[in-house]
Computed example of a mutant assay.
Amino acid sequence: MDSAILADPDDNKRTRGPQVSETRATTSVYPPGRYGRRRQPGRRWSLPLVLAAIVCGVVAIGVSWAYYQKFGQTDYSPEIVGWNEPTDAQMVIKFRVRVPVGETASCMLRARDYQGYEVGTRAVQVPARAGGGEVEVTESVPTTARGSVGDVMSCQPVG
């Protein structure tokens, strides 16, 4: 401390009281028998909890597999290849669809203008080729105005 600031020179020798060292306890100390049995530190996994987690995991995998089989890869999956330069009255759409052997696919085609409005639709039937697999189809869609984009909205089995 700066002695020029203090009013009394004896103030330089004063302290706040006797210095006490402090020792902290590492664990809480409770009175014996008052709060029941204390657990040992560390988490132990109980068998029912582990079994419940395994069962939930197996059920989740089973449900995922079932939904994939029902809604996953379909046999009638269309893929747009392109379209020709549209006119004011029609748009020619070229697409590819996978059709199983002996089946026929019914596909819904759509033409849209630059703003995204639908200007024409057409349903076409695509028979399977010999040996099954993908069939490439070129079909025209009549439009009410000049289209800019051709889509295959869906393909599904006939009937």
Rank of each mutant, 00 (worst) to 15 (best):
A7M: 08
D11W: 05
R14M: 04
T26L: 07
V20I: 13
R34W: 02
R37L: 04
T27Q: 13
S28N: 09
N12D: 13
T26E: 13
T27A: 07
N12K: 10
P9R: 15
T15P: 04
A25H: 11
N12C: 15
S21P: 09
Y35F: 06
Y30G: 00
R16L: 10
G17Y: 14
P9K: 14
D10L: 14
R37V: 04
G33K: 03
G33R: 01
D8M: 05
T26A: 08
R14L: 05
T26C: 03
E22D: 15
P32H: 02
T27S: 13
G17F: 06
P18E: 11
K13S: 06
Y35V: 11
A7L: 06
P18Q: 14
A25W: 03
Y30R: 03
K13Q: 03
P31T: 03
S28K: 14
G36R: 03
S21F: 10
T23K: 08
G33D: 01
T23W: 04
D8N: 12
G17K: 15
Y35W: 08
R37W: 03
R14G: 07
P9G: 08
G36H: 05
V29S: 09
P31Q: 02
E22K: 15
A25Q: 13
N12Q: 12
R34K: 04
G33E: 00
S28Q: 12
R24W: 03
V29T: 08
T26G: 03
T26F: 06
G36E: 06
T23R: 08
T27R: 12
Y30C: 00
G17S: 13
D10F: 11
P18L: 09
G33Q: 01
